[in-house]
Write a protein that binds this DNA or RNA. Structure first.
Lengths: 262, 262
DNA sequence: CGGATTGTTGATTGGAGTCAAAACGTGTGG
DNA sequence: CCACACGTTTTGACTCCAATCAACAATCCG
């Protein structure tokens, strides 16, 4: 996967300070295979290894780099004055981290590795200037922003569910969908994060996440073994996940489709 | 504020199809005053009026335009299969709508006007090509993405609060802060949205929003009259808003600052 | 004026937060 | 290799907050 074009020949033992990857690699990681070409092969990024629980981005840090996850996984966090750590979301292979630094040149949220991980380090200003020559890099940036916004919406959707069981069911389905998009199994899930991280992200107590998981297991939807979860009855999970807050009493959806503006 | 440069002389009766504004206007609306110059004066956008409850962006619509709010306000919505309308956030003067269309070229969420409003219509592809010549437009795009991501984080923070009263207090403070950033009063707030919209955004029942408001009023923090809210005791509101889920039991914040990776 | 939407208030009840304790896993150092 | 400490996970019991249902008042429309 790594084109070590001009670099050292021992891929496995490359020092993190010297390891490099190309923009084409990043494009492929992000799912933009068609945009990887000979021109982007010549754009090199350094890579950085982050061990489990290591901090890739500190909250409040000045914005300099964007990172693309090559291997491993991260959680996005925001710590409030009380020291409570709110988990904003999770990032996996191909996701770009650090985009919130676009606001006022400071990272409003941090990124912490859930396991030993590797990222491509993309200096933002260089990326921008290079993107004026290379539309592929421009597309990469826009795509990354779109994906990030999409993930935020999804997370809000998770949190909006009324019951905790529904939230957990949605979380599992969402997780499975992302795994599937990466070519992994959508049935066998290995959770990289703790129950507490999930709980923070869903806005419930961490005990509640556990209870919801055992409840879902007892109803036959899933099996749970530590952090390994297997989805047994996906349709049942989907059915469970549908229940939202309140009845669709208003006809707001209908009204909306009427209220089209020319 | 609007430069009706070459247009008709009766501003109030201008047809939406003919009204125009310049990129400099949009830059100023977004707070990027320093970037507005003679070069951006020559870039024209058409404007569009949307009456109250009018739909600016339909969910699922193909992505063509970005919109910058010139006057009025909007809510971002996502309707699920059941017809339940989840409010993702609110947009005011200077906010850019439609960025979630960057993901797969379709708008994942819609935008509905809370009152009669006006937006600048920016064709995305034209904006991108123009931005290669004009760094100011490039900056505009990045700034808009940063602001959008910031708003999403803020909304997640609102929803993460344990008690409903805290959520509402945070919502008011957040709202006041945005009003203040626009040069409006941070004490006198006029809510443009219904209690139900707020409730959806905060993830609580709409009755609960009302109860929380009356409770905050009875404790002397605020006064409430319909949709007009005055913040009487801002420090007390801040104090109220601090309470988060659970005690700061772990030393995660401390550990994080130790776990710096080179 | 009348209908619909919005907002408020009350009574009830279930669900989830909280506290507590124990089982389980993991990694560390003796 | 074992012992120990620490974090994670699970389970239980209790309490209370907020969802829900319901009725009503206020407001905004045409």
């Amino acid at each position: 996967m790594n084109h070590l074009a001009t670099s050292i020949a021992c891929p496995d033992l490359v020092r993190s300070s010297t390891a490099r990857c190309t923009a084409s690699d990043v494009l492929r990681w992000s799912g933009l295979h068609a945009l990887a070409g000979s021109d982007t092969d010549s754009v090199l990024f350094s890579t950085r290894r982050v061990h489990a629980d290591g901090v890739l981005i500190h909250e409040g840090q000045t914005f300099e780099y964007l990172y693309c996850v090559g291997a491993g996984s991260f959680k996005g966090v925001q710590t409030d004055v009380e020291g409570y750590e709110q988990v904003l979301g999770f990032a996996f292979h191909g996701d770009v981290l650090g985009l919130d630094g676009l606001y006022r040149g400071r990272h409003g949220s941090g990124a912490v590795a859930l396991e030993d991980s590797t990222v491509a380090v993309m200096p933002f200003l260089e990326l921008v200037t290079a993107s004026r020559r290379l539309p592929a890099l421009e597309r990469l940036l826009h795509h990354a922003a779109g994906v990030e916004l999409r993930h935020r919406s999804d997370t809000q959707y998770l949190m909006s569910a009324a019951s905790s069981e529904v939230r957990v069911a949605r979380f599992l389905l969402h997780f499975a969908q992302r795994q599937n998009a990466l070519g992994l199994s959508e049935r066998r899930l290995r959770l990289r994060m703790t129950r507490r991280d999930i709980a923070s992200c869903l806005g419930v107590a961490h005990e509640t996440v556990g209870r919801a998981l055992t409840a879902l297991a007892q109803s036959g939807c899933i099996t749970v073994s530590h952090r390994d979860i297997e989805i047994i009855d996906a349709p049942a999970l989907h059915e469970m996940q549908r229940v939202t807050r309140g009845a669709p009493r208003g006809r707001s959806a209908i009204r909306a489709s009427h209220a089209m503006v020319a």
